[in-house]
Amino acid sequence: MGYEIDKTEEQWRQELSPAEYHVLREAGTEPAFTGEYTHTKATGVYECRACGAELFRSDTKFESHCGWPSFFDPADSSAVELLEDRSHGMVRTEVRCARCGSHLGHVFRGEGYPTPTDERYCINSISLRLVPEEDAGESRG
């Protein structure tokens, strides 16, 4: 798929830290329970750390106790791209930023969480940047 933000891997390497690059561009995973936003309850907008696209809002974040931030719905259905992932001997649904193609995590369905969608977007903290509500309102006009 072609993305609005189209950079070479060398450009991404220059802009991202090695850990960010590993997760966002190589579909890596940060260790469970180590991410910056795993337990965050702050109100705001979660943006793609690579390109700044709005991905999730804090009012869709919930405690799943899985070790990574969990959301039950993206901010906009077109904000993310869902792809079949057959890595590691299993079939999952990968979640990528629809604007730049960066790996965010995976989405799981039918796990029984008491959420409106019965979906858990399990997202790496390092793939996100939280813009607090007061700042988000100012930057969006």
Rank of each mutant, 00 (worst) to 15 (best):
E84M: 04
S58P: 05
V80W: 15
E47R: 14
W68L: 10
V45T: 08
D85T: 03
S78D: 04
D76N: 15
V45K: 02
R49F: 00
R96K: 14
T38N: 15
M90G: 11
V91E: 09
E63R: 09
L83S: 14
G28T: 01
R86Y: 09
P74Q: 02
F62G: 10
A50P: 02
A75G: 05
A79S: 04
S77C: 01
D73Q: 06
V45S: 08
H88Q: 02
R57I: 00
E54Q: 11
E47F: 15
T43M: 09
A27R: 12
T34K: 02
E30D: 06
S78M: 10
E63I: 08
E84F: 07
R57F: 05
E47S: 13
C48D: 12
P74V: 02
M90Q: 12
T93H: 06
D59L: 04
T40V: 05
R92M: 11
G28H: 00
T38Y: 10
G35R: 00
S70W: 04
G89K: 06
C51G: 04
V80C: 13
E47K: 13
D59H: 07
R25S: 05
T93M: 01
F62S: 14
E63T: 13
F71G: 01
F72D: 02
R86D: 14
P31K: 11
T34A: 07
C48T: 06
Y37V: 01
A50Q: 03
A50E: 03
T34Q: 07
E36L: 14
S70R: 10
P31Y: 12
R57Q: 10
V91R: 07
K61W: 00
E84Y: 10
R25L: 08
E84T: 15
R96W: 05
P31N: 09
F33K: 10
G28L: 03
W68R: 13
A32V: 08
F62E: 10
G67H: 06
P74K: 00
A79R: 02
C66I: 10
V80P: 13
P74F: 03
R86S: 15
F33W: 14
R92E: 11
M90T: 09
T34G: 07
D73N: 06
S70M: 01
H88K: 09
S58Q: 02
F56M: 09
A79C: 01
R25G: 07
T43Y: 15
F71Y: 00
